[in-house]
Design a protein around this nucleic acid. Structure first.
Length: 198
DNA sequence: TGCGGGATTTACT
DNA sequence: GTAAATCCCGCAG
């Protein structure tokens, strides 16, 4: 049985609107059972039928079935021919989820460097980078983040979300790009995107 | 430091 | 057939 650095977030934490859950995930930890730990510094909410940019906007398919499943599971999808991205499923089966966009590396950096190279700032700065650093692939789609044998958990080590969390437009999408459903820790150098943005 | 374009495969139209 | 919730490298300034 793996030991986790922080307190594992309960199912009820996730079983809400992804726009509520997303900012609350800032400053939480993503942990793997083999000791890789990163602090969540950037997230985006995706909102099922409300949201043309969500994979679930047009209903259930084989690819997005996990996102319509129980909250607290991990939805992992493949994009651009080479990248995996990782979400926490939210709500009660509506097809809502929060995309984990960037982490500040906390522990297990050597294992991350082995997969990502030695530029520590870029280890987990971006949704496809962090999945590579943690070894997350389609094999992990649907695993439970709350209990069971899966290698991953999101935990709370007592640090509150930033009071001044920045809500801004989402990144890397062409539809519904004006909804301010991206949240980040202000000033954190591990947030993705241009180094100039606030 | 900042941009522009190629990589590469999956899922849906 | 084509666009995709991206990243990385090369080149210009």
């Amino acid at each position: 049985m793996a030991r986790w650095l922080g307190k594992v977030l309960p199912r009820a934490f996730y079983a809400r609107d992804s726009r509520i859950v997303a900012p609350l995930l800032l400053n939480k930890l993503l942990e793997s059972a083999d000791g890789r730990v990163g602090r969540i510094v950037e997230v985006e909410a995706y909102c099922g039928a409300l949201d043309e940019a969500a994979h679930t906007f047009r209903g259930k398919t084989a690819r997005n079935a996990t996102m319509f499943g129980p909250a607290g599971h991990m939805y992992v999808y493949f994009t651009y021919g080479m990248h995996w991205c990782c979400n926490a499923v939210c709500g009660k089966g509506e097809g809502w989820a929060v995309l984990i966009r960037a982490l500040e590396p906390v522990a297990g950096l050597d294992a991350m460097r082995a997969l990502r190279g030695t530029n520590d700032r870029d280890l987990c700065r971006g949704p496809a980078r962090l999945t590579q650093a943690f070894g997350i692939t389609g094999d992990e789609d649907g695993v439970d983040l709350v209990r069971g044998p899966s290698r991953f958990r999101i935990t709370d080590d007592g640090r509150a979300p930033p009071a001044d969390a920045r809500a801004s437009a989402r990144i890397g999408i062409s539809k519904a790009k004006d909804f301010p459903w991206r949240w980040s820790v202000p000033g954190n150098r591990f947030v993705s995107g241009s180094s100039k943005q606030a």
